[in-house]
């Protein structure tokens, strides 16, 4: 063997290893898709089903994509679920008060921004651990949602048709039989948020600085990064994302309930974690989060269609998350 060839081999081996380490989750995702395609022939791989899935995960997607922004810095936001509920309640109360749809949506998003600002001040300027700070605000936002709504579900005539029909609508892209196939509005919103977060994190100086904070906040600060301000901004963006997710949810169910966003938080964090297993450095990247969101959505969709018991479904989804993270950390230890 020539020295050149040996050097070539030395170069290529770690690249192979790297590819294997980071693609385990993706391979798992493909395995899941193949498995469902075989077991649910005809329907699983159809375009209508994938449009369904895209719409079903759109709310989780928006919350998880924006959650990625704070998790890049190694922070968390546990308050996103109750912020989503609160945003829905605020919009619905304004609708009940005969305010226009746009006004309700803008005020609800502003509340998301303010909630994120509050989280950001607690974490970044007062210095409370994000876990504790956002656990506190989770409870506060939740209480506020209950207080404002009187614990009731706001629905029926209070919710304008313009608002609820948004989640049912889409852009016509063809037809299956007599049914018109729509590219759902909710999916479009999620894709726009995905694009914006991707641009922010991967293509701007701000994004690179957020990753620098996640790598070593102290070094970033000494390197001239305005750590406090950036953390504050990141939490505000996550807050707006949570509020937007909550509005999408409220539009989909044509109602607002003070607890309806509660399930989004853990799923969003799980999606980001699943995505992190796909990065060499174990950093969150928004495209990884997208795969995480799709894994959760596809499992829900496929296992439902296979008529797996809902409780067994939960156990399986949990087990798959644990398996993905385990295999990724085992592979990394073995390098």
């Amino acid at each position: 063997m020539t020295t050149e060839a040996a050097a070539e081999q030395a170069r290529s081996r770690p690249q192979w290893g790297r590819a294997l380490r980071t693609s385990g989750t993706l391979i798992g995702f493909l395995a899941i898709i193949i498995f469902f395609t075989i077991n649910i022939p005809g329907t699983f791989l159809s375009l209508p089903n994938w449009l369904n899935i895209s719409q079903q995960v759109s709310m989780l997607g928006v919350v998880a994509f924006t959650m990625t922004i704070v998790m890049v810095m190694g922070d968390f936001d546990l308050s996103v679920g109750s912020m989503a509920s609160l945003a829905g309640i605020i919009a619905a109360l304004l609708f009940r008060d005969s305010q226009p749809v746009l006004a309700g949506v803008i005020v609800a998003l502003a509340v998301g921004l303010l909630g994120g600002l509050f989280n950001g001040i607690l974490v970044s300027y007062i210095g409370i651990m994000p876990f504790v700070a956002t656990l506190g605000t989770l409870t506060m936002f939740n209480g506020l949602a209950f207080l404002l709504s009187g614990g009731e579900t706001i629905f029926g005539r209070d919710i304008p048709a313009d608002f609820s029909s948004f989640a049912r609508g889409g852009i016509p892209i063809g037809s299956v039989g007599e049914r018109t196939l729509l590219f759902p509005n909710l999916t479009i919103v999620a894709l726009i948020v995905l694009a914006l977060v991707w641009l922010l994190l991967e293509q701007t100086t701000l994004g690179r600085r957020l990753y620098a904070i996640g790598g070593n906040a102290e070094a970033a600060r000494l390197g001239g990064v305005r750590v406090r301000l950036l953390r504050l901004i990141a939490f505000m963006l996550t807050g707006v994302g949570a509020a937007l997710g909550g509005l999408m949810y409220a539009s989909r169910v044509a109602s607002a309930n003070p607890t309806q966003g509660a399930g989004l938080m853990l799923d969003a964090i799980a999606a980001v974690f699943l995505g992190m297993t796909m990065s060499e450095e174990g950093e969150p990247h928004v495209l990884g989060t997208l795969v995480g969101v799709l894994i959760l959505g596809v499992l829900d969709n496929g296992l439902t269609q296979m008529r797996v018991d809902s409780y067994v479904r939960e156990i399986l989804i949990g087990a798959i998350i644990v398996a993905a993270v385990t295999s990724s950390s085992l592979a990394k230890r073995g390098r």
Binding site: I40, T43, S46, P48, N49, N52, Q55, Q56, M59, Y249, R252, V253, S255, N257, T259, Q260, A262, G263, D300, N301, T304, Q305, S310
Partner: peptide, 18 residues
């Protein structure tokens, strides 16, 4: 769907598809 009303819609869609 453990309290999740939007998930009821998702599961209806899945069942229709099935």
């Amino acid at each position: 769907t453990a309290g999740d009303v939007a998930a009821v819609i998702s599961r209806i869609e899945d069942m229709v598809n099935q």
